[in-house]
Design a protein around this nucleic acid. Structure first.
Ligand SMILES: [Mn+2]
Ligand SMILES: [Mn+2]
Ligand SMILES: [Zn+2]
Ligand SMILES: [Zn+2]
Lengths: 134, 134
DNA sequence: TCCAGAAATAAGAATTATTACCAGAAATTA
DNA sequence: TAATTTCTGGTAATAATTCTTATTTCTGGA
């Protein structure tokens, strides 16, 4: 796999922050650097970088596919209200993997854990609207 | 929410087996009972049943949205090779939820855990192709 | 250095999954 | 019964992703 300017820009855009951009969001970022880049090139390179193990694909929260530059396994918290998906910097517990390998006969090599709830901001909003009703 | 024949058939189709059907797969099943049912009705009712807490939506593995009739929280094993998603009947560990609530300020009320790997069948296929190469 | 693939690109068409819309049917209410 | 509400089937529209094709860029050997 050649490292073209387009491909490098895509990789860097996803790695940049701890962020989980969709293809279109990556496109918007990369376009500032390479204005003529095609959306199809972004899609293609995202998938190729996943294939090469340089990016991960997020288990779909929401409609679009999202990508991940932080390769270390980690938990995600997802807000059902605003759609935010944030990383949690906490050592992951892998003990369940072994147990499930024995139970199912699968060979497990990764784990995707999303904690579903309300972010601090939406929590406030929801509590206020409850108070208004009662 | 009225329980119309269409809605009941959709609910029953998802509950039937421990399976994770897409809207179109539900459509194919329900159509045998109600041949004139519209695909839009299936989509609409699936979402309404999720809203009413009678079905759950699966965190997207693959491109279509999948639905779940087994409401008890449980682990899923996903095969990267063939796309199979299976239930694991094992009591879930909820201890991490509390820890993450404290850490992030989120209010967590659900958890979605997918164990990514190879199903017993694909495992065999992959091992054989490795042997052939060497 | 020049050339012949091979690999990658931009642009846009096509495909797929989902949602929106609407007119009429069915159920509910007064 | 008549008015109102809810739901349905059919179809059009939208959004995300993939495919196609002509063109450009790169690489390794003559
Ligand atoms: Mn992450
Ligand atoms: Mn399940
Ligand atoms: Zn939020
Ligand atoms: Zn498999």
């Amino acid at each position: 796999m050649r490292m073209t300017p387009q491909r490098a820009a895509v990789l860097q855009a996803v790695r940049a922050r701890r962020w989980h951009p969709s293809a279109h969001e990556v496109y918007d970022v990369v376009r500032r650097q390479i204005p003529k880049i095609s959306l199809a090139t972004v899609y293609r390179n995202l998938e190729e970088l996943v294939g090469a193990g340089k990016l991960k694909r997020l288990q779909g929260v929401g409609r679009e596919r999202r990508y991940e530059g932080w390769l270390k396994p980690h938990y995600h918290v997802c807000c059902v209200e605003c759609g935010l998906v944030e990383d949690v910097d906490l050592e992951m517990d892998h003990s369940v993997e072994k147990r499930i390998e024995g139970l199912t006969g699968y060979e497990i090599f990764d784990q995707s854990v999303e904690l579903i709830g309300l972010c601090p901001h939406c929590r406030k909003t929801v509590e206020e609207s409850h108070a208004r009703k009662s």
